[in-house]
Design a protein around this nucleic acid. Sequence first.
DNA 1: ACATTTGCATACATACGTGAATGTAAAAAA
DNA 2: TTTTTTACATTCACGTATGTATGCAAATGT
Lengths: 208, 208
Amino acid sequence: MARRTKAEAEATREALLEAAEEVFFEKGVARTSLEQIARHAGMTRGAVYWHFHNKADLFRAMLDRVRMPFEALVAETGASHPSPLETVRLGFQQSLLRMEQPRHRRVLAILIHRCEFFGDIDPCAVQAEMAGECLDALEGYFGEAQRLGLLKEGIATETATRLMQAIISGIFHDWLRDPDAYSIHERGMALINAQLALISRDETDTSR
Amino acid sequence: MARRTKAEAEATREALLEAAEEVFFEKGVARTSLEQIARHAGMTRGAVYWHFHNKADLFRAMLDRVRMPFEALVAETGASHPSPLETVRLGFQQSLLRMEQPRHRRVLAILIHRCEFFGDIDPCAVQAEMAGECLDALEGYFGEAQRLGLLKEGIATETATRLMQAIISGIFHDWLRDPDAYSIHERGMALINAQLALISRDETDTSR
DNA sequence: ACATTTGCATACATACGTGAATGTAAAAAA
DNA sequence: TTTTTTACATTCACGTATGTATGCAAATGT
């Protein structure tokens, strides 16, 4: 084959990443060879080794296409809201909506269920980073809620934070085991609303 | 080497499983060969293929040593308790205590973070089975709690069940990312108690 | 006591995946 | 236009994992 133009080259790079997502999702990361990815994209391994240094590099590039910090999601919701609890609600709503997009769904499923650490990449660390980021944000919002007197009396900020973090994490993992079974956005928001109602001082506003 | 007696053979089988746990935990399932496992146990691959049909079979045998259904854990707590909420508390207490045992910790870590589906084995299905079992039990206990009027008014049985299930799942996954960081029994029971207090009609008894 | 089976170790055949080296034709630079 | 990169394709050398076949001495059955 002949050489491609710059735009075409970028297109094949995207095609390789797309192919990687699909084959990784179907067969797991360890069981797929670079040859299989290349063939799935209509290329050869030569193309893979040209655009990426090795399998770990390709994997990392795949992850980089879908990373989304929690704060960015909050910012994405637009206007700033008076209640930090409402901010949390909207942030997670954005987050859960994102997860239902096919690309994000696939990559997250790969990260959680279809890869183990290999080379110099540790998916566990990636998960820990995402979780920590989320926890920090939650801590901030719930801390402010506490100062504003929005939380039910007798419940510590830390407890409320950790409970919500665990709920999110649990919903996320349970859903990812079978993403086609139900909508994480629907069921997730129902649970988050319920929990927010449980920990709010005035239960009528957030209970939906 | 010479042939071993029946007891010795059973001992090497256990040794192989022990070695599998250790090497799987250190390097991940996909990246460890049967040769490595055998050498780690002081044997050769011949022993592995004698006791197990292949890697998937060995993996399954390893899992079978630590499986423990939720109902069995509840039964293990001894006397039956009047309140279904208290039963849930005690069941999870047993469960979390088990998880802190080195063997269980290691195998669970392997199942969640150090393997992807391979051959005819799907760790995701194993997880789903465990989660489903737990969910069914919870549904039963919370259903009875609802009938007994133990739950706070305005909260549906299904909501309470799913919230608790998500919390357990979340605690579990978060802890497994770094089991040495803290005690899942301590932190987990704190959260479970807090949540039980939140959903109980009379908040003074379960809030500790 | 002898035959048989068991519990492995060893050897072999096969397949596959990687990474690097090399080839090459067209695009981009000069 | 000529030269130089670029964007891959092809080939090769190497290591490594798997499954099976075979060997063998001691334990076990008779």
